[in-house]
Design a protein around this nucleic acid. Structure first.
Lengths: 183, 183
DNA sequence: CGGGTTTGTGCAACTAGTTGCACAAGGTGA
DNA sequence: TCACCTTGTGCAACTAGTTGCACAAACCCG
């Protein structure tokens, strides 16, 4: 129920076409709300049908023609409503933790390599976030928008920090464990 | 693609009926892989049809009759295979972060109350995890199974710790922000 | 100038998870 | 004893997300 709102946010930040949105999802919003281009196009269609956004004029619509959208007042209102409405946190789902728990009954064989791989991925992501922080949030800027966006980025950084630390600890633990052990 | 494996894990830990599984999901496995009773029953059906689990004999099947399942060798093999197979981390989706980002363009009105509520929820969850740690993992126990399960619990504790800290920081930031500000 | 890659838009089918409800059996109290 | 609650099992319909593919226009290279 949040993809439309992610799109509204992105479009308010800057009117864009489907593909531009896709790219921006890959780089920034997608860090905490990923979406494929197919999802995005489908949702753009719905949002337009609902009168929350509209295609910018100046292009005749056609397949293979760029088509940009902007948010209408109704869209902004809906986003504001959604943002301020209270919502329960969705339960997490984490495959890696599940696999670890499974390994407790079925043996740890093969898991270690993948832990190491995940560690690398998280380290890379962390580095990317820190790079963004250096680039976009040098000390001293503190408009409201910047503050909020920085806060979101900090969440990303801290989460990746957590994962890298946890994975390192897990690997240390694994080193001391008797191998395999399928009960 | 992981619910069946969550169920296999739970059943290996202890053969159970659908409702017992549901309760155990609410308490422990569900902390990182939640599922409703409807999902669980449906999946039990599939797993049985696939020959990965079977109903314990000794009860005639009937509606409103308890029916317990145990894992067959094929099921254990499948779980072991899945556990050791390499998997890419699924992208996260976090509504709260999305809302914060939306608030940067559409105003922060109403958000603070919900941040506070989330903080409370995470504090409660953290307390629960720490209670479990005290109860189930007193210092000194270190069989392989315990080590792994403890590791998983530590992830839960550290994650909740992260969230409570981040939310507290967010609330501090909010305190300094000009109110509302719908652009 | 004609064939291949890239850019951009989109439909269709599938999978996973959620919500809402149905219904049987057994106990509980009026 | 009969209405009602709890326990336990389950189906059906819906919503959200994923995967696979189609196809037009534009660009670019020989």
């Amino acid at each position: 129920m949040s993809l439309p709102h992610a799109i509204l946010t992105a479009l308010l930040e800057k009117p864009s076409s489907g593909l531009e949105l896709t790219r921006r999802f890959d780089r920034s919003i997608g860090y905490f709300w990923s979406a494929t281009h197919q999802q995005i196009y489908r949702e753009l269609g719905k949002l337009e049908a609902d009168g929350l956004i509209r295609a910018l004029p100046s292009q005749q619509p056609a397949r293979g023609q760029k088509k940009s959208y902007e948010v209408l007042p109704a869209g902004r209102a809906e986003l504001a409503r959604w943002t301020s409405a209270s919502q329960d946190p969705k339960p997490h789902r984490d495959t890696l933790l599940l696999r670890l728990r499974a390994a407790a009954v079925v043996g740890t064989a093969g898991l270690e390599t993948d832990l190491r791989r995940h560690l690398e991925l998280h380290e890379r992501q962390l580095a990317e976030y820190e790079e963004i922080e250096r680039r976009d949030f040098p000390p001293g800027r503190d408009g409201t928008e910047d503050r909020l966006r920085h806060l979101v980025l900090r969440a990303g950084i801290d989460l990746e920090t957590f994962w890298t630390q946890w994975l390192r600890r897990a690997l240390e633990d694994f080193a001391e464990l008797p191998d395999g052990e399928p009960t």
